[in-house]
Design a protein around this nucleic acid. Structure first.
Length: 172
DNA sequence: GTCCCGATTCTA
DNA sequence: AGAATCGGGACT
């Protein structure tokens, strides 16, 4: 089990996105294997929160790679990203789904369910206990246990109305 | 200050 | 298909 360092995240976002599949995300006592992500890249990507420059909400995206960008949306959910690329370049990988590994009981308690604990960006934040207040800006803990994911597929990103021409959602 | 809407999820 | 629910960001 090797922890991924800044150099892993400080690369082109599409590469980092695909390489994150199969890796283990750890948050507190819970962890899970990443099986679905999306890339949001820079000011020319209309779907990226940073498309119109730096704001109080998205400033973490402009910071160092490997940190968590957690934001609140739809009045009730949080979404978690991991910042990529060089300092000053706003880009990140949205973690859309993970397969629960450690801490399943805690996840079930937080979700109030025993199935579908982490199969969605809002759900996994609830299961892992991530909020912008507690986790935005912290360093992400991601590990490589040499697991080899199956064939990686791609599609347009989910839930957006612009930038749907880009197939920047990756899963396996 | 006001207004619109969202990188979602759950229920019907 | 529609509701829930509220903060961010654009701008009348």
């Amino acid at each position: 089990m090797q922890r991924l360092n800044k150099s892993f995240f400080e690369r082109p976002t599409l590469e980092v996105s695909k390489d994150l599949l199969g890796k283990i995300l750890k948050v507190g006592k819970c962890s899970g294997r990443i099986n679905e992500v999306e890339a949001y890249i820079g000011q020319n990507d209309p779907a990226c929160h940073a498309a119109r420059g730096k704001t109080e909400r998205n400033k973490i995206m402009f910071g160092p790679a490997g940190h968590l960008y957690v934001y609140f949306t739809y009045g009730m959910y949080h979404c978690a990203n991991i910042v990529t690329e060089a300092d000053g370049f706003p880009a990140a990988v949205l973690i859309r789904s993970i397969e629960p590994l450690e801490g399943k009981e805690l996840m079930k308690k937080r979700r109030g369910k025993k199935d579908n604990l982490c199969d969605g960006p809002g759900k996994l934040c609830i299961a892992l206990g991530m909020t912008k207040e507690s986790h935005n800006g912290l360093k992400a803990e991601v590990f490589d246990d040499n697991f080899a994911p199956g064939k990686i597929k791609s599609s347009p990103r989910i839930g957006i109305k612009v930038g749907i021409d880009k197939k920047w959602r990756f899963f396996y």
